[in-house]
């Protein structure tokens, strides 16, 4: 009875479907938060590519006469819009350069960890048996140990350079990708297309790289986007602790770390990079969630 009454009340419009406005449909496909996040990430990538052209000063140029100048609108002048730090270096230039360094490190490291993860996951799925067991044990061991401690140990023993640093961060998050890739490859193997490819006579290389990888790539891409904020935060933490990138090289975490001594007298030195870390990691997470919902056909 209730259904019939509902039908009567909506039938005044002459259709059982309620028409949605164009704006509403658009907002459903592209929520405003997602648009903001995507715009911010586009800006970050633009800065990462063109930072040397955008910086008004050299990020290492010291100007002792202009130390600790506040930003414009807070009592500072327009020649240093975001103020200067304790050595008189332009905060805007340093921030732009730091974004370039941090974003590049995060993307390179994530690619390395994805490549390692997919390779190990496929090896485990292909060989099964003891190879699978060994790989899963290494994954569990990695999960059981905080990555920060491994990173500190490695950096303490091997010293620091950009190459070592990127390689080290490339070990972050591989265990997640390994598990995902292994699980998806095993389930793909039981599906008809992988069996059919094998029964055509295709080699395992061909089955895994040409058939299984494209079919599971959507999930892997989402896992990658979720790994990026982790790497940015890890890089920031290590640099903050002083064992990440060393001065005069700069990164977002490095700026926060050295700016904290002046947090009371010149808070702008660390506020700007901190804000960028927060907004960027948040944006990547929002984009990852949105991508997952969009790519996964079962969630539509």
């Amino acid at each position: 009875m209730a259904i019939e009454q509902d039908g009567l009340s909506t039938s005044t419009e002459g259709s059982v479907f309620t028409e949605k406005g164009k704006l509403q449909t658009f907002l459903q496909a592209w929520p405003p938060l997602v648009i903001l996040a995507l715009a911010w990430l586009a800006l970050m990538i633009f800065i990462a590519i063109f930072a040397p052209l955008l910086t008004p000063y050299d990020f290492m140029a010291v100007d002792v006469l202009a130390r600790l100048k506040p930003p414009a609108f807070f009592g500072g002048a327009f020649n240093h819009i975001l103020g200067t730090d304790q050595l008189g270096r332009d905060v805007l230039s340093r921030t732009l350069t730091s974004i370039r360094v941090s974003i590049t490190v995060a993307i390179c490291a994530t690619m390395i960890s994805t490549a390692i993860g997919v390779m190990l996951g496929f090896l485990a799925a292909y060989f099964r048996g003891w190879v699978d067991q060994v790989i899963l044990t290494i994954v569990d061991a990695q999960l059981a140990m905080p990555f920060m401690i491994i990173a500190i140990a490695v950096l303490a023993f091997l010293g620091n350079s950009l190459t070592i640093f990127v390689m080290l961060l490339g070990l972050y998050g591989w265990e997640q990708v390994t598990r995902i890739a292994r699980g998806l490859a095993i389930s793909a193997n039981t599906q008809g297309y992988a069996a059919a490819a094998r029964e055509i006579g295709a080699s395992p290389w061909r089955i895994y790289l040409r058939h299984i990888l494209p079919n599971i790539s959507a999930t892997i891409v989402v896992a990658m986007t979720l790994n990026i904020p982790g790497v940015i935060l890890l890089e920031s933490s290590l640099s903050f602790l002083g064992i990440g990138l060393q001065p005069p090289q700069t990164s977002l975490g490095n700026m926060v770390g050295y700016g904290r001594d002046y947090i009371q007298s010149a808070p702008w030195i660390m506020l700007m990079p901190s804000a960028i870390i927060v907004i960027t990691t948040l944006s990547v997470s929002i984009m990852g969630d949105w991508l997952r919902d969009r790519i996964d056909p079962t969630l539509k």
């Binding site: 008809g192 297309y193 059919a196 055509i200 006579g201 295709a202 080699s203 494209p214």
Partner: peptide, 21 residues
């Protein structure tokens, strides 16, 4: 795998045996 050249199978469920991508 070489022998597959001489023998092939036709499957009952065609959608399952084709790669969707």
């Amino acid at each position: 795998r070489r022998m597959r050249r001489r023998m092939q199978m036709i499957y009952q469920d065609p959608l399952g045996a084709l790669d969707p991508r």
